[in-house]
Amino acid sequence: MATYIIAGVIAIVFAFGIRKIYRNFTSGESDCCGSGGCSGCGGHCHGEDKLK
């Protein structure tokens, strides 16, 4: 049972990670863009929507 639960959790996080790679590529924005206008890495990401 533990095998199924742990494998399920890993599968979900794995899918989420792969989706993130795909989305980052297609949107052309890095992870830092979600952190308040990209202050983490120097600005210039599209923070308009995220601030709403």
Partner: peptide, 25 residues
């Protein structure tokens, strides 16, 4: 400090998502 935290946080988020998926792969 906020900027430093944002960087560290972004790095951790990446480790928990993209790097996690890459490690499994």
């Amino acid at each position: 400090l906020l900027e430093t935290w944002e960087k560290g946080k972004g790095y951790l988020v990446k480790a928990g998502t993209i790097i996690f998926a890459m490690s499994v792969l």
